[in-house]
Amino acid sequence: MGEQVEASEDTSPGDKARAYWRANIRLLVTLMAIWFVVSFGAGVLLRDWLDQFMLGGYPLGFWFAQQGSIYVFIALIFFYNWRIHRIERRYDLDDDDEGNG
Results as ranks from 00 to 15, higher is better:
residue 75 A to Q: 05
residue 56 G to K: 08
residue 75 A to I: 04
residue 75 A to P: 05
residue 75 A to E: 00
residue 99 G to D: 12
residue 52 Q to E: 12
residue 12 S to V: 10
residue 66 Q to I: 06
residue 34 I to E: 01
residue 4 Q to Y: 13
residue 8 S to R: 15
residue 55 L to Y: 13
residue 49 W to K: 02
residue 36 F to C: 03
residue 53 F to T: 01
residue 95 D to Q: 12
residue 27 L to M: 14
residue 89 R to W: 06
residue 53 F to C: 04
residue 33 A to E: 01
residue 14 G to E: 08
residue 88 E to K: 11
residue 34 I to A: 08
residue 64 F to M: 07
residue 22 R to K: 12
residue 24 N to M: 10
residue 33 A to V: 10
residue 83 R to C: 07
residue 41 G to A: 07
residue 37 V to A: 13
residue 12 S to A: 06
residue 33 A to W: 01
residue 2 G to E: 06
residue 100 N to V: 15
residue 80 Y to N: 08
residue 78 F to K: 01
residue 29 V to H: 02
residue 70 I to A: 09
residue 40 F to C: 04
residue 23 A to T: 05
residue 10 D to Q: 11
residue 36 F to N: 00
residue 7 A to T: 04
residue 26 R to W: 12
residue 78 F to V: 15
residue 18 R to E: 09
residue 22 R to S: 12
residue 55 L to P: 01
residue 78 F to I: 15
residue 63 W to H: 04
residue 99 G to H: 02
residue 36 F to Q: 00
residue 95 D to C: 09
residue 23 A to W: 06
residue 52 Q to S: 14
residue 74 I to F: 03
residue 36 F to E: 00
residue 45 L to Q: 09
residue 20 Y to F: 15
residue 100 N to G: 08
residue 16 K to S: 15
residue 35 W to L: 05
residue 87 I to P: 05
residue 101 G to L: 10
residue 6 E to P: 06
residue 75 A to R: 03
residue 66 Q to W: 06
residue 51 D to Y: 01
residue 32 M to R: 01
residue 88 E to I: 00
residue 18 R to N: 13
residue 88 E to Q: 13
residue 92 D to N: 09
residue 57 G to L: 09
residue 20 Y to H: 10
residue 40 F to H: 06
residue 58 Y to A: 15
residue 77 I to A: 02
residue 65 A to P: 00
residue 49 W to V: 15
residue 50 L to M: 12
residue 52 Q to L: 10
residue 33 A to M: 07
residue 8 S to Y: 03
residue 27 L to S: 09
residue 64 F to R: 01
residue 30 T to Q: 13
residue 75 A to K: 04
residue 9 E to I: 12
residue 95 D to I: 07
residue 2 G to D: 09
residue 25 I to N: 08
residue 29 V to Q: 05
residue 65 A to I: 04
residue 74 I to G: 02
residue 58 Y to E: 10
residue 97 D to K: 11
residue 17 A to P: 01
residue 71 Y to M: 06
residue 98 E to C: 11
residue 70 I to V: 08
residue 94 D to P: 04
residue 38 V to I: 04
residue 95 D to T: 10
residue 2 G to V: 01
residue 61 G to S: 05
residue 46 L to R: 05
residue 11 T to Q: 13
residue 37 V to G: 02
residue 32 M to S: 11
residue 57 G to M: 06
residue 87 I to T: 08
residue 34 I to Q: 01
residue 10 D to F: 04
residue 13 P to F: 06
residue 37 V to N: 00
residue 23 A to I: 00
residue 62 F to M: 08
residue 66 Q to D: 09
residue 35 W to Y: 03
residue 12 S to K: 05
residue 87 I to W: 07
residue 41 G to F: 03
residue 98 E to H: 11
residue 94 D to M: 03
residue 11 T to D: 02
residue 54 M to D: 14
residue 46 L to H: 03
residue 94 D to Y: 14
residue 33 A to F: 07
residue 48 D to L: 10
residue 26 R to V: 08
residue 24 N to D: 14
residue 98 E to I: 14
residue 12 S to G: 15
residue 63 W to C: 09
residue 12 S to I: 09
residue 37 V to D: 00
residue 82 W to F: 12
residue 29 V to A: 14
residue 1 M to Y: 13
residue 43 G to L: 04
residue 4 Q to A: 08
residue 33 A to C: 07
